[in-house]
């Protein structure tokens, strides 16, 4: 019986539309966790996300964070992300100081196939003095299309180690490796196993649940347009956050050319 159910799941695949949900840092994903989805048709992403202080990843200073993130899929297997974290309360106290920017890459090691999940490797280049947001991970995502909607599962592992640039050192390569839990930044984003599940009964909305290696989070998302995704989520049912993501296509022709083509039709 069980194998039949499995077979039913496996045989009910359809072509997947581009799956545009993004996580707090603008990568394809859920709430905090990323997924192995790849937004091929919409290679440019611009995301805003608001995080409650208690779950802000900046372990030592629990103030609210606004993330402004940019994603560019340069090829079908290589993607770059940049996030700028703005902490309004921190800005009031410390008048100066370089802010927190996070640059990282995603590599798609394998595409999703009928029986195999998509596999993605995420890597943050080392070199930061305060790598709060560093995350290096390997993860797999599988979509199941059923008669009742789409189910998506992700399982991943994030490296519990982090490279630290030695303070005061001029050399970019003067690094030391430490366990995230032993660094006094008190930031352990994606350190260890994490997993997520989302369920979308319709194309434009769904619910999701994740364990991001630190906490259990849940949320809902809607996609009023193909280029816009909005989501609200809660961390352990204690605090709230939300994310809005624009996902844009870069393959359109110039406006006057398109207008001419439309007139021809």
């Amino acid at each position: 019986m069980r194998s039949r159910i499995l077979l039913f799941f496996l045989l009910s695949f359809l072509a997947f539309k581009s799956l545009a949900q993004v996580n707090i840092m603008g990568k394809p994903g859920y709430i905090n966790t990323p997924s192995a989805n790849w937004n091929t048709d919409r290679p440019l992403g611009i995301t805003f996300s608001h995080l409650p202080g208690d779950y802000s990843m900046f372990g030592n200073e629990k103030t609210d964070v606004n993330f402004y993130s940019f994603r560019a899929s340069l090829t079908s297997f290589f993607e770059v992300n940049l996030s700028v974290a703005h902490r309004p309360a921190k800005a009031e106290i410390d008048k100066l100081g370089v802010g927190d920017r996070q640059l990282d890459f995603r590599f798609r090691l394998s595409k999703e196939r009928e029986f195999l999940p998509a596999i993605v490797l995420g890597w943050t280049p080392p070199g930061s003095v305060a790598p709060y947001l560093t995350h290096d991970y390997l993860l797999a995502t599988k979509n199941f299309k059923t008669n009742l909607g789409r189910l998506q599962l992700t399982v991943g592992f994030g490296s519990p180690y982090v490279f630290l640039k030695k303070t005061g050192s001029d050399s970019y390569f003067d690094l030391e490796i430490k366990k995230k839990s032993q660094v006094n930044l008190n930031a352990e984003y994606l350190s260890g196993f994490f997993s997520a599940i989302s369920y979308s009964p319709v194309d434009f909305a769904g619910v999701m649940m994740e364990y991001d290696s630190n906490s259990l989070n849940g949320g809902i998302y809607i996609k009023p347009f193909n280029w816009l995704s909005l989501q609200a989520h809660t961390y352990e049912a204690k605090a709230w956050g939300f994310t809005a993501g624009l996902n844009l296509s870069l393959s359109k022709s110039p406006k006057s050319l398109r207008a001419y083509e439309d007139r021809m039709d």
């Binding site: 921190k90 100066l96 802010g99 927190d100």
Partner: peptide, 8 residues
């Protein structure tokens, strides 16, 4: 210029 806390 991004990244300064006072005015990101």
């Amino acid at each position: 210029r991004f990244g300064y806390y006072s005015d990101p």
